[in-house]
Nucleic acid binder design. Structure first.
Lengths: 170, 170
DNA sequence: GACATCATGTAACCCGTTACATGATTTT
DNA sequence: AAAATCATGTAACGGGTTACATGATGTC
């Protein structure tokens, strides 16, 4: 049920349309909780039905601008303070590591080398994102910056670990 | 489609029953790709139908011991070498960070403090797992050890990041 | 004999992905 | 006039979670 809270969270900063939210997902939440267009529109309808958000204005092309209701803000706060983050993390990348023994040592090292490249690319991508964003002093900027730092550190860790792991293969 | 490859991977080491595989998931793959009992049994049936695994022996209580077929091993190798790990990582924990601005600074720091505690617990849990395992020189041991190191480093990174983040909140 | 463990299978529901489907408005 | 962008909605499918359902075998 995190998608709904992601939407509530974004709407807590500014009113926005489904289209706006889709763009916000692409830039800010893409690395924490990716969502597709179809998912967003479906969930917005459900959130409106549940009274957690409301249509505040309508624009050209059937644009519907949603705002967070008092119930929606309460639900967001409840999620943040009263529920534990417990989503099981699944990593395709790490799963493969367990089975590298069915490959030759060279192939196994090759896999880890690719991971190093991907870590570097990811790190660079976040650096570029950092530069492209107009960092203000609003909440999403402050905490978005903290989340971005998480990503930078994660990629650095990936690189160092993959280098170490490569040396473990005899 | 990673569950099927996780099963093929485990079977590449030793023949095993659904029940055995369930136990293996709990100890070795739990942190990379958790799976439930119902999922495992369903997938094993599909894999057998597809000819990637076969029932090699039957035991008491309807126990079916599966082995990897040549096609299964080929599929495992194909997955490891020819397909890219691209599973989008979703992190409930990180998503929440974006919206900590709707809480008071004290509450936000409280959330990060909890993350530090969970990181320490996770680190300790892996240390205990490390000690409880009878590390041999088979493939799953060698690469399982590498995967475990990944977890240790991840938890360390989490702690350091959360401590840093806590200091960023004014 | 009671209890723990071994052992398998199915059904309902929710969430996420991909693809389809349509059309208005703005920019070049 | 053409192309890009804005804007929304639905349907089919696949995978994961929870719960239900059953029973045999080994151990104390």
């Amino acid at each position: 049920m995190s998608l709904r809270h992601a939407l509530l969270g974004l709407l807590s900063e500014h009113p926005a349309s489904g289209y706006d939210l889709l763009k916000l997902f692409e830039t800010s939440l893409a690395n924490a909780w990716p969502a597709t267009q179809s998912q967003i529109y479906t969930e917005l309808t459900k959130l409106a039905d549940a009274g957690l958000i409301a249509v505040a204005a309508e624009g050209p092309r059937g644009r519907k601008e949603y705002t967070l209701t008092a119930e929606g803000l309460a639900e967001l706060r409840h999620w943040l303070t009263e529920t534990k983050p417990q989503r099981t993390t699944r990593s395709d990348t790490l799963l493969r590591v367990f089975f590298l023994g069915v490959l030759t040592p060279d192939q196994a090292r090759g896999y880890l080398t690719e991971l190093i490249e991907r870590a570097d690319e990811g790190h660079q991508g976040l650096r570029q994102l950092e530069e492209s964003i107009d960092w203000t002093d609003d909440n999403l900027s402050v905490y978005g910056r903290i989340a971005l730092e998480y990503g930078l550190r994660l990629h650095t860790m990936h690189r160092e670990w993959a280098e170490w792991a490569s040396g473990q293969i005899t």
